[in-house]
């Protein structure tokens, strides 16, 4: 196909740039359907209980740690674990993968919800097909999911972050929030609880701005943080909500020479925040043990597939603390948030 006519070329260009805008606008970069194709190739072993987990994105250390935890649990419980997700955060691709998993007839499907409106119909479809479906890591309460495997209660996470940040800035001042995509359920829920906590406990702390980084990218977070600090030069603290925005936000503060002056906190994995804790830009980060969360996902999947009921307190072999089940909300809770600081940052590998 040789294009010689200049007008044809111009038309082609306009079409392609439209394509780019669509991709950028919905951030559903549909340029990568490999993951969905991979799912087609998975062999489902009929003798074993098969539990699948669809992360928001593959390739970041956090979900890789969940994958490792899940694999360990699968090995110990004699189950099969399928870990498959989009290569850049995309709810549309998650739905595609779910679709192929339903056709593969696995026993239990779990997912970390990105955009509930895209995946809720798939959850219903999986229920119709008679599978156990549950959410993990990020919830969609209005879907037909069986349970939600929670890393920590969203409320605890939001409150804890604000408490730690308030302690760092002596309970008063201005803070800015830099989040990932504006449509991601769990990030928005945390921000709501942060606001709630501030209103109730810290009247002297004010949120000056909430920014969203494009595609959750760290580079975009860097410029958003820089520009936020330009607009509000007296900002005392920055919250990097999504793990992927932490390097950008911390780097922005470091480059501005404001380490120690502007507090940076967020939900970042130990590996992500380590260089910044070492350089003094960040004092603390809040998260949970992703390895344990992955472990719990597979354990819960096996229980659901085998039709076992959850107790109020469950002893999970392989996990230190008993796991609480909150029946009215259908939440299986890993435990309280994990505070990461210079003392324990070296103890994890995600």
């Amino acid at each position: 196909m040789l294009i010689k006519d200049k007008n044809q070329k111009a038309i082609l260009f306009v079409l392609i740039s439209f394509l780019f805008f669509l991709m950028a606008a919905c951030s559903d970069s549909s340029d990568n359907s490999d993951a969905a194709e991979d799912a087609e190739d998975i062999e489902v072993n009929e003798d074993q209980t098969t539990v699948a987990f669809i992360p928001q994105v593959v390739g970041i250390p956090y979900f890789t740690a969940m994958e490792e935890g899940g694999e360990k649990a699968a090995e110990e419980l004699g189950a099969q674990f399928i870990f498959n997700g989009p290569t850049s955060t995309s709810a549309a691709e998650q739905a595609q993968i779910m679709d192929s998993l339903i056709r593969r007839n696995v026993d239990a499907i779990s997912l970390s919800v990105l955009d509930s409106s895209s995946t809720n119909p798939m959850i219903s479809q999986a229920k119709e097909a008679g599978l156990s479906v549950f959410t993990a890591d990020s919830d969609s309460p209005d879907s037909e999911r069986d349970i939600y495997v929670a890393q920590a209660l969203d409320k605890d996470l939001g409150y804890e972050l604000i408490d730690r940040l308030a302690a760092q800035i002596d309970n008063e001042g201005k803070i800015g929030i830099i989040s990932g995509e504006s449509t991601v359920t769990n990030l928005n829920t945390w921000i709501e609880y942060m606001e709630e906590r501030l209103e109730a406990e810290y009247p002297d702390i004010e949120i000056v701005d909430i920014r969203y980084s494009q595609g959750g990218s760290s580079e975009s977070a860097l410029t958003e943080a820089q520009d936020l600090m330009t607009r509000h030069q007296d900002v005392d603290g920055l919250v990097a909500v999504s793990s992927t925005t932490i390097p950008g936000v911390a780097q922005a503060v470091q480059q501005a020479g404001k380490a120690g002056e502007v507090a940076v906190i967020g939900y970042g994995s130990p590996e992500t925040v380590k260089p910044f804790i070492e350089s003094g830009v960040m004092k603390e980060s809040i998260l949970w043990d992703a390895f344990d969360l992955g472990y719990l996902v597979v354990w819960a999947g096996v229980q659901l597939a085998e039709g076992n009921e959850f107790e109020e307190e469950n002893d999970v072999p392989g996990l230190e603390n008993p796991v609480r089940y909150i029946e009215e909300e259908g939440v299986l809770l890993l435990g309280p948030p994990l505070l990461i600081n210079e003392d324990n940052v070296d103890d994890f590998d995600f």
Partner: peptide, 16 residues
């Protein structure tokens, strides 16, 4: 030099 790190989605917005 500017970022101090390389992320998975590096350069995705760049062509546009």
């Amino acid at each position: 030099a500017r970022m101090g790190s390389v992320e998975m989605t590096v350069g995705h917005d760049l062509p546009l």
